[in-house]
Amino acid sequence: MSDIQEMVEDLSLLDSLATIFPDSSRTTLRRMLQAGRVEVDGEIIHSAKYEVKKGQKIRIRTRSEIAPAPVKKTAGGRPIEVLFEDEHLFVLAKPSGLLTVATDKMENNTLHSRAVDHVKRGDKKRWAYIVHRLDKKTSGIIVFAKSEDVKMELQNQFADRDVERVYHAVVEGELEGKGVISNYLREDKRLRVLAFDSKVGGSKEAITEWESKKKGPIYTYVKLIIQTGRRNQIRVHMADMGYPLAGDKEHGAQSNPLNRLCLHASKLSFQHPITGERISLIHNPPNRFLKLTKEN
């Protein structure tokens, strides 16, 4: 097959790719588009619905052309791990122990401050817009926007529960099976999160799906999917079940085997606000999580 294919009929870009790569699944072709590997007449196109006209030429870029050197530090020299980035948004992996944003104490080393440093590397006028947050003690995937409009579009998806959010955790105890926790959470005057079986003033619905993946005599490795994103939702829900997260002393944990909260945001899936494509990012939890079920 030639590196450049001239189209002989009008088709959507996804259908055009399907004619060029008949043995590839549509999922694979969409990933190719998301990765910026497809050019139409020299222009990189991300949208599967883009209309390719007869006579236009499609070129597939090699992986070496699109894969920049991984960014491991901000311009200021602080560590950063970029999972996905285009001109509209970017996705980072947050380490445990780092605030997402500054509190009223105005901390100057947060994931957001590192994100701002990152986008300003190429253009001092750019900014990183906060879409959602992870607790300081939680690690994993978090998305930032590069414009106010993209931020609002993404936040609407979170509010409408159109974003898939998967976590992995280690809980104390032998937990089997799977289930759904649904109740209402509210913060008290001390900012503690309390759970209620029915709606009370100021409370918000919280829904967590859980599934035991690997059970040991002391710890259990658990997969969790949250339909809502309340503060400390997973921590409160699992503690109320009698299985607090390892390392979560605030919610009743008796141990801290890894010197951190054993909770990791491992998957984030959302619709790209500009291209309309589904973006799915996976960041595996630390191997030490699963090892806890084998070592004890």
Rank of each mutant, 00 (worst) to 15 (best):
I4V: 14
Q5N: 05
Q5W: 11
E6K: 13
M7D: 01
V8R: 13
L11W: 03
L13D: 02
T19W: 00
P22W: 04
S24Y: 14
S25H: 05
S25C: 05
T28D: 09
M32N: 03
A35W: 07
G36N: 10
D41S: 12
G42V: 06
G42H: 03
I44Q: 07
K53I: 03
K54V: 14
Q56A: 07
I58Q: 04
I60T: 07
R61Q: 15
E65A: 15
A69P: 10
T74K: 07
G76C: 09
R78F: 14
E81G: 05
E81T: 15
E81C: 12
V82Y: 03
E87S: 10
L89W: 05
L92P: 01
S96C: 13
T100I: 04
T100Q: 04
A102Y: 12
T103P: 07
M106H: 12
E107G: 03
N108I: 11
N108E: 15
N109H: 08
T110S: 05
T110E: 05
H112L: 14
V119R: 08
V119H: 05
D123N: 13
K124G: 03
K125N: 14
R126G: 00
W127R: 12
Y129A: 04
V131H: 09
H132S: 14
D135N: 09
K137C: 09
K137E: 15
G140N: 08
G140I: 06
V143P: 09
V143N: 07
K151Y: 00
Q155K: 14
Q155H: 03
A159E: 15
R165N: 06
V166L: 13
Y167D: 01
H168Y: 13
A169E: 02
V170I: 13
V171H: 00
E172C: 06
G173A: 02
I181T: 07
N183K: 09
Y184A: 01
Y184Q: 00
L194H: 06
A195Q: 11
V200L: 06
G201W: 03
G202K: 10
E205I: 15
W210C: 01
W210H: 00
K214M: 07
G216Y: 08
Y221N: 01
I225C: 04
I225E: 12
I226H: 01
Q227Y: 11
Q227A: 10
G229I: 06
H237W: 03
A239S: 15
M241I: 08
G242N: 00
A246L: 02
A246T: 00
G247L: 08
D248K: 01
K249V: 13
E250H: 06
H251L: 14
R260G: 10
R260H: 10
L263Q: 06
L263K: 01
H264M: 04
H264L: 06
A265W: 01
S266L: 02
K267M: 14
Q271V: 14
H272K: 05
H272L: 12
G276A: 04
I279A: 04
L290Y: 07
T293F: 09
K294G: 02
